[in-house]
Design a protein around this nucleic acid. Structure first.
Lengths: 308, 308
DNA sequence: AATGGATGTTTGTCCAGGACAAAACGAAAG
DNA sequence: CTTTCGTTTTGTCCTGGACAAACATCCATT
């Protein structure tokens, strides 16, 4: 195992920092200052990549790059989160002990134990409560733990994968058919998190909506085609906290322009907290709001049956 | 619905063509030649985006950009695929009629009918045969249909999502536990296709391997950490046909350098057909090869029990 | 007629360094 | 304590040049 080096494209893959950003940081802050290979191209060391990963995580916690890049590598690890407010997931949880137990299973990479514990909770609580009181807060806790550096990326991936399977299995057990309204669930390109969509799908399907799950990363023009082909009443999009918030309003606006007015747009997920909604787009930062919106939609459909 | 315009970042999202490529094409071939907004930045029309999507699809079929960009927009639609060879999926399929029926259900957006038909086949064939004789060839057919322009992106997404659910449900029903070998299943960043991984997982789990599914898009350094944490014997990666083939050898080489030698690396999927394997990496372009490799691994583990 | 190698062309990615608007910040005023 | 208004920070976009790897083409040799 020799000391590996990374091209600028590889660093972009590993850290999620764009090539433009990597170059402009080097110009402005003098870090990272990679070696150059035979062709004069940047060649980053593993240590630099590691430090960049750490910087990226601290930025997601609200730190600013200008400060972080001035701090020597060793001092970085000790920085505390610097968030506007920890959006209060801890207190809203019904039983924090149970969540902690589940979190511990994840940290120990005990896939089997986690699956069994979750399956048991699902049986006890029923799907609706399970989603709202177990999966949603647990996802929040995982996010916090990741920000605090208490959890590895691959641990988070394993959690996501196992939880996805649970929810999909539960959804598969629900009665399908020709129901109303027809909800198209997906996310835009670059947004790969699907857990939120599955949670909404569970709740909506329980309430008798027909859900059309398209997975993640649909180009806007494809969303429009799909909505037409499936005669969707609602397009539901999910934005995770990791999604670049600055792009969201423009994206929603563009989609609103492309879709016929009678198709509603719902946007959810932790990513929309910091964004304003364009006209004709409903934001629902919390799961319950989707249920309220569903009730409201049905009332409206009752009152004006022709409008769809 | 006014005529929408797209920034260069939006076009990158919609088409998958990088900003660099879009700019260099404009410089070299004179297309696309977008308007400029108030700030002098590129602003692409919907028609240009549409033509770019078509060009991208034809490129995936083996056409070369230089030719495509010289062809007027109207003539583009009539181009035929220009492939080295249509890797013969049609003849290997046991019953092409059944596959055509399934394909038709997808084209009609009949999610319910598709699910029922697939569930029925799964019951009739058993998981192993179902994966190899139904899911794998069907996936191939979908890919061909997409290349031929006979299927929309969102239709392919719906197929993927529904099939994922089926396989995951089937896998969940298999006995888990402390088995051998331990196989870590994932894909590298930029590679988001997970169906191939699920197919392999089904087969390996049936044979009594312990599968650790980490979902897609793991940075290389995270794969290394996960392999260590889970004490994996094998790291299995999937590369779809859409993954840029030129990057694959370097990626595998880098991962080989990072991972301890006792951890095997298996790479599968249609994407590896055009690539050479670095030393210490096993390529398996077809599903059966994974089963053969598993048998070989077990034989070796028998012969040299200490090596792990 | 097939194989192999040399030569030329195509094509994606990288580079430097400049510019600018939107966001984040912080200080002053209500 | 909240709002307003300059100032700084920061990501993204720009131009135009360069080059190596991939690909195609052609010729010589078996």
């Amino acid at each position: 195992m020799n000391t590996p080096h990374f091209s600028i494209a590889a660093v972009e893959r590993e850290t999620g920092l764009s090539k433009d950003v990597l170059r402009v940081w080097e110009r402005r802050y003098g870090f990272p200052l990679p070696e150059r290979d035979d062709h004069g191209e940047r060649s980053y060391s593993a240590a630099q990549v590691e430090r960049l990963r750490l910087i990226k995580r601290l930025m997601d916690q609200g730190h600013r790059p200008g400060k972080l890049l001035a701090i020597p590598a060793e001092a970085l690890a000790e920085l505390a989160p610097r968030k506007p407010a920890s959006t209060a997931t801890a207190d809203s949880a019904a039983d924090p002990d149970a969540l902690n137990d589940l979190l511990t299973l994840i940290r120990q990479h005990d896939a089997l134990g986690y699956q069994q514990a979750m399956q048991q909770r699902l049986g006890k609580q029923g799907l609706s409560t399970f989603v709202q009181d177990t999966v949603a807060p647990l996802t929040g806790r995982i996010g916090e733990a990741w920000e605090a550096g208490q959890i590895e990326v691959f641990e988070e991936h394993l959690f996501t994968e196992l939880t996805k399977r649970l929810l999909r299995q539960a959804i598969a057990g629900l009665p399908g058919g020709k129901l109303q309204p027809r909800v198209l669930l997906t996310s835009v390109p670059e947004e790969q998190h699907v857990l939120g969509l599955l949670m909404v799908e569970s709740l909506l399907a329980l309430e008798g909506a027909e859900c059309i799950p398209l997975g993640t990363q649909m180009p806007l023009l494809e969303i429009v085609r799909a909505a037409e082909a499936h005669q969707a009443d609602i397009v539901a999009l999910s934005f995770s906290i990791a999604f670049p918030a600055r792009q969201i309003p423009a994206l929603l606006q563009q989609l609103r322009d492309l879709l016929p007015g009678k198709v509603a747009i719902w946007a959810g997920g932790a990513g929309i907290l910091r964004s304003a909604a364009p006209l004709g787009v409903q934001l629902m930062p919390r799961l319950e709001l989707a249920l309220e919106a569903l009730a409201a939609w049905r009332e409206m459909a009752m009152a004006y049956p022709g409008s769809r």
